[in-house]
Amino acid sequence: MIKDSTIKRSKVTLSNKYKNIYEKRFSSPLKRRLAVLKASSSIVSLGKYVILFGLSFIILYPIIQQLAVALRAPEDINNPLVLWIPEKFSFKNFEISMIILDYWNAFKNTFKMSFIVMFLQLFSTSLAGYMLARLRFKGSGIIFALVMFTIIVPQTTIELPLKLSLTNFLNTGVNLLGKSTTLYLFAGLGMGLKSGIFIYLFRQFFRGVPEELEEAAYVDGASPIQVFYKIMLPNAKGVMITVAILAFVWQWNDSYFTSVFVTDANVTLQTLTTKMMGISGNIQSAISQAGVWQLFDQDVTKNPLFTSMILNTSGVIAMLPLLLMYVLLQKKLFTEGIERSGIVG
């Protein structure tokens, strides 16, 4: 018996092989259908990979480019052979940009502002969102409509009168314009940068929490405030993380809001972004003020690409802390944040 089978196997020719495959995969309609399904799913997954990784490249392209530019030595500018990968790696550009941006001071300001604003935004928007979802009373529909209204109205619409009223706040003669306190006041009173969107996110989340939970707590004798901080808040971790990150990042990247209402941001309270915006207009004079022209040969500094390179590097180091934080936190963000945020339309 054993011998027979070995003989059979050795006699398998090419046509037999195909026959075997046919019998295994295509002989019955069910098998045919399964084969088609398998093939199509593998094609789909291939397409998925191509699209996702291609688009990932598009997203990463500017970062790659910026890093490639930032890491090259200034002397490489005049070398036409260097396009993407620098011949000599150096951190000279970083040093120059740090001097120009007054980096550590600006970093400290930015971090402090973003951090405080993040907490204040979380506080005011989570309270308002919970009220709109769960502590409704007559007229709360109007409040929600007004919140939506604050989202829709562009900041520029109210910028001018607001600025004028802040210079003499409520006719008390107090000038609120210019200090970072104004920003904190806005954030703490739910009128900060995109606060309306955060309120909306919180409302959607709290609406999705099953009502039975609250009823059970009520039967056990909990008051509304206890329901809020003992049941709702621990459940709201996902949406909290999402809102915290968005508030932090948007404040970090914001140049409009900060430079309009914190006029000191243009002089003493410089943040990385406002400083970056400030120097991008007149990079030439910024470099000459920092006194680094003399460090290089004339053929380097005469090249118009030199200023562009420094500007590029400034952009990189303005964003670098944020990117590093993101890389460290991203796993937490996705597993505990967005996917658990439970935001339902």
């Binding site: 506080f123 308002a128 502590l135 709360s140 919140v147 604050t150 109210i158 009173l189 009128m191």
Partner: peptide
């Protein structure tokens, strides 16, 4: 509690949004 929760926002709205 609803009224207490919405006061920060309402204050902000009345001070910094509606008049401008």
């Amino acid at each position: 509690w609803g009224i207490i929760f919405i006061t920060p926002w309402a204050l902000g709205f009345l001070l910094f949004f509606l008049p401008p």
